[in-house]
Simulated assay, not measured.
Amino acid sequence: MNYAQVLNELETLVNETFALWEHNRVGFQWRHYTWNHTMRVRALSMELGKREGGDVKLLEVAGTLHDITKRYDGVILTDDNGQRILDHNGFWLNETLTPAGQNIVTELYDKHDLHGTVHHESGAVITENILGMYDFEPDFVQAATAVVLAHLKPMNLTAEDFKLLYNRIENQVLYDADTMDPNVGYTAFFRNIHIHSYFALQRGNFDLEDYVRNLPRWINSKQEFVDKLLTESSREVAQARQDRNQHLFLQMVDELDDMEINRKYGLLGVIEYFVSVTEDPHFLNQLDYLQNEWLPQRQQWLAEEENGASARDRAQVAIDRVDDFLTLLTRESNGEI
Results as ranks from 00 to 15, higher is better:
residue 84 R to C: 04
residue 309 A to N: 12
residue 151 H to E: 04
residue 112 H to N: 13
residue 307 N to V: 02
residue 101 G to I: 01
residue 42 R to P: 05
residue 77 L to T: 03
residue 202 Q to V: 13
residue 191 R to V: 10
residue 79 D to Q: 00
residue 98 T to G: 01
residue 255 E to M: 12
residue 190 F to D: 02
residue 211 Y to Q: 10
residue 147 V to G: 01
residue 295 L to N: 09
residue 269 G to H: 13
residue 39 M to C: 02
residue 291 Q to E: 04
residue 29 Q to K: 12
residue 84 R to S: 08
residue 254 D to C: 08
residue 202 Q to K: 15
residue 132 G to C: 04
residue 256 L to W: 09
residue 11 E to A: 02
residue 245 N to Y: 00
residue 89 N to H: 12
residue 46 M to C: 11
residue 89 N to L: 12
residue 42 R to N: 11
residue 70 K to E: 03
residue 258 D to Q: 08
residue 163 K to T: 05
residue 94 N to H: 15
residue 201 L to V: 07
residue 173 V to Q: 00
residue 99 P to F: 06
residue 80 D to M: 04
residue 308 G to Y: 01
residue 24 N to K: 15
residue 125 V to S: 03
residue 239 Q to E: 04
residue 280 D to S: 05
residue 226 V to A: 01
residue 85 I to H: 05
residue 173 V to P: 10
residue 25 R to K: 06
residue 54 G to C: 10
residue 8 N to M: 14
residue 252 M to T: 02
residue 287 L to H: 05
residue 217 R to G: 09
residue 19 A to N: 15
residue 46 M to T: 00
residue 335 G to Y: 08
residue 167 N to F: 12
residue 179 T to I: 01
residue 42 R to V: 11
residue 316 Q to Y: 10
residue 285 N to Y: 05
residue 32 H to G: 03
residue 186 Y to E: 00
residue 114 L to D: 10
residue 207 D to F: 07
residue 70 K to P: 02
residue 17 T to E: 14
residue 210 D to V: 01
residue 116 G to K: 13
residue 18 F to M: 11
residue 187 T to E: 03
residue 118 V to F: 07
residue 213 R to S: 01
residue 37 H to S: 00
residue 173 V to E: 03
residue 310 S to Y: 12
residue 10 L to P: 08
residue 128 E to L: 03
residue 224 E to P: 11
residue 113 D to W: 12
residue 128 E to K: 09
residue 31 R to N: 14
residue 3 Y to T: 13
residue 3 Y to D: 04
residue 250 L to N: 13
residue 289 Y to I: 06
residue 74 G to R: 00
residue 287 L to V: 02
residue 190 F to Q: 13
residue 268 L to W: 06
residue 312 R to A: 13
residue 9 E to I: 02
residue 68 I to R: 11
residue 162 F to N: 03
residue 259 M to D: 12
residue 278 T to D: 00
residue 155 M to T: 05
residue 144 A to D: 01
residue 304 E to G: 12
residue 149 L to T: 09
residue 56 V to D: 00
residue 202 Q to H: 12
residue 296 P to I: 07
residue 247 H to K: 09
residue 95 E to A: 09
residue 48 L to M: 01
residue 187 T to G: 05
residue 284 L to M: 15
residue 223 Q to C: 02
residue 32 H to R: 14
residue 70 K to M: 06
residue 93 L to M: 08
residue 62 A to Q: 07
residue 25 R to V: 08
residue 240 A to K: 14
residue 229 L to Y: 04
residue 172 Q to D: 12
residue 32 H to F: 10
residue 257 D to W: 08
residue 226 V to Y: 03
residue 65 L to G: 07
residue 161 D to Q: 14
residue 90 G to V: 08
residue 294 W to Y: 14
residue 65 L to N: 11
residue 130 I to G: 03
residue 96 T to I: 14
residue 113 D to R: 05
residue 198 Y to W: 02
residue 173 V to T: 05
residue 24 N to E: 10
residue 198 Y to P: 15
residue 133 M to Q: 15
